[in-house]
Design a binder for these strands. Structure first.
Lengths: 141, 141
DNA sequence: TGAATATAATTGCCGGGACAATAACATGTA
DNA sequence: TACATGTTATTGTCCCGGCAATTATATTCA
């Protein structure tokens, strides 16, 4: 029985994911935000006033993790929770001014990180790559 | 400024990685081994008697993590540490009989998990995918 | 040789992911 | 209405990843 892990897809996806995340983390450091915190902020830059549950679905994270990441963002005063008038179990999420202002800095940062990662790779190949990643994801759903 | 995170490579790589890892985790559960523990065992199935440092390099993990994963494998009596005769700071890693016996079960499990993930994807496309992941990794080195 | 420097392994700390359990509230139905 | 059931958010527990600091041993070099 053979299993060449060096060349195994699981190993390569994991390794590349760690590298990309870490590269982004380093770039984000001056702003005291992590890639996961960035991902939540990114959704709120698109639309405020959503619930923790909606955020979990949008970001493909589970609710306990969302709750804890939100705690951190709230401590940093980048977001705040407000009671949900139509459901007393729930609350809605809003950006503070500081949280809103970060968009202008952090989106270009994400784009330039991605640009570095994709240097020298053709646009069609990147699209092909995304298709394959989505296909794998769908195969395991 | 626009940033469609749904379609962002970082998001897709991260999402697919989590899904693959979790699928494998579920399959490994009956054996009480995690994907990361599996990765270390896999290296030892190839070659015993290596050091923690060598293992870290081979698996692209950092040494503190390796030490902790090894602690777990040792508690489960799948591996053991033996002093390194040529360097008293170091030790060498060996499989127990139980650790060695797992290979026969767990390699087919890894292969079938991968097979499910790659269902319906052409062999050349998988190779292309690996090339691109390696290229991205190299771009960030 | 002896002191400075480098290296191997570990520990502590923090961030995040998976999962089980819980508390509080909503909803559906007898 | 009253009770069973479902849902939202949270907390606890464990696993892994990154990084700084520490301990013990090796190596280098004045």
């Amino acid at each position: 029985m053979q299993f060449n892990i060096e060349n195994s897809l699981g190993f390569l996806v994991n390794r590349t994911n760690k590298k990309m995340k870490n590269e982004f983390l380093q770039n984000l450091k001056p702003y005291d935000v992590t890639p996961e915190q960035w991902a939540l902020l990114n959704r709120l830059w698109e639309e405020e006033g959503i619930s923790s549950k909606e955020l979990a679905e949008l970001t493909c994270k589970d609710q306990p993790n969302i709750a804890r990441i939100l705690d951190k963002l709230e401590k940093k005063e980048l977001i705040f929770r407000r009671p949900n008038p139509s459901d007393n179990r729930s609350f809605l999420l809003y950006l503070t001014d500081r949280g809103r202002e970060l968009e202008e800095k952090l989106i270009p940062l994400a784009l330039s990180t991605l640009e570095k990662a994709l240097e020298g790779i053709e646009k069609e190949q990147v699209e092909e790559l995304k298709l394959l990643l989505n296909r794998i994801y769908a195969n395991l759903e």
